[in-house]
Simulated assay, not measured.
Amino acid sequence: MSAATVLTAAPARTLATTTSFGADDHPVLDLITGRARTGAYGPDPASLRIALAFGTTQAVRHSGRARGYRNEVLSLRLGAAVGSCAVEPGDLPADTVTDCVGATVGDLLDHPHTAVRVAALDAYLGHCLPHAPAYGARRFGLPAGSSLVKSRVRAAAVVGLLPLAAVRRVLVVGVVNSLLEQLRSHEVGYLPCDLKGGTTEWDEPVHTDALAHLDDCDAILASGMTLGNGTLDPLLAHARATGKPLVLFAQTGSAVLPRLLGDGVTAVSAEPYPFFWLDGGPSLLHLYGGAAR
């Protein structure tokens, strides 16, 4: 990777497309939630209460970059675990955080807003199945430094989960320029897809319909935000049907998505709160599947 190439760690937004899945369809989320309710992972979600809920709003514009971006995340704490779901800025009603406090996890798994359901399930699974070697996680340390420095190191870990020697072109859903930089350094092609379109740091067009390009790739690298709006499901269905590698980099649903390993998902980079962009000190990723590092 060239030290002279300075990239913005763009937000991991999700694809916009017409699919067979309706706006309210979340098969993967419903599947894992159903398992949680039947005791597959631990105690009854109705027996556990959320004591703390909070939102995080971030804005950044790196020196030398023409554009900045914003992130907004809902987080719920259950014991030592924090479950999170990123949303588009302004998408959550103002009273959402207050409504979550004191509610049972079971109640929140029925919440009308998908972000609340994802954050509640993430908190529950992080509580029952914490990121640890006993549950298949490998720790990967990010060094202290700027958000850009940490983004680049994270990108190297995430891209390393792909079987790079066997991959020619990757569908990247949720454009993060540091990830694209890593793929370029390995001379691997990519198709960048993101809800808001635009261009990459190399003036490449960003596609807004990821599903239209599934047949043009031989691996998929997708943001955990796809869980939050249901767009993970068609990507997962394609990976299951074709056997293509599907690697997820997840701040949203970091404890949820490892439950899909071996069921269409080949590897997950799980990054629970606090995220790398919140703290200049050392922090951790938890890697599941992929090549041992």
Results as ranks from 00 to 15, higher is better:
residue 130 P to G: 13
residue 118 V to R: 02
residue 176 V to S: 08
residue 173 V to H: 03
residue 123 A to N: 06
residue 103 A to L: 08
residue 142 L to C: 04
residue 113 H to K: 04
residue 148 L to D: 14
residue 167 V to T: 01
residue 116 V to E: 00
residue 107 D to R: 15
residue 118 V to Q: 02
residue 201 E to Y: 12
residue 133 P to Y: 12
residue 181 E to F: 13
residue 88 E to S: 15
residue 112 P to A: 05
residue 122 D to F: 11
residue 98 T to D: 12
residue 127 H to K: 07
residue 88 E to H: 08
residue 192 P to I: 03
residue 144 A to N: 13
residue 126 G to S: 10
residue 141 G to L: 14
residue 114 T to Q: 09
residue 171 L to A: 08
residue 197 G to Q: 01
residue 154 R to G: 11
residue 137 A to N: 06
residue 174 G to C: 00
residue 101 V to D: 13
residue 148 L to T: 15
residue 153 V to H: 13
residue 150 K to C: 04
residue 106 G to V: 07
residue 162 L to N: 01
residue 143 P to L: 04
residue 175 V to A: 03
residue 149 V to G: 09
residue 109 L to M: 05
residue 123 A to E: 10
residue 90 G to F: 02
residue 118 V to N: 02
residue 118 V to Y: 06
residue 193 C to H: 00
residue 187 E to Y: 13
residue 101 V to Q: 12
residue 138 R to Y: 11
residue 138 R to C: 07
residue 161 L to Q: 09
residue 115 A to E: 04
residue 129 L to T: 12
residue 179 L to N: 04
residue 199 T to S: 10
residue 114 T to H: 12
residue 99 D to I: 14
residue 89 P to N: 11
residue 187 E to S: 13
residue 91 D to I: 07
residue 167 V to E: 10
residue 162 L to R: 07
residue 201 E to T: 11
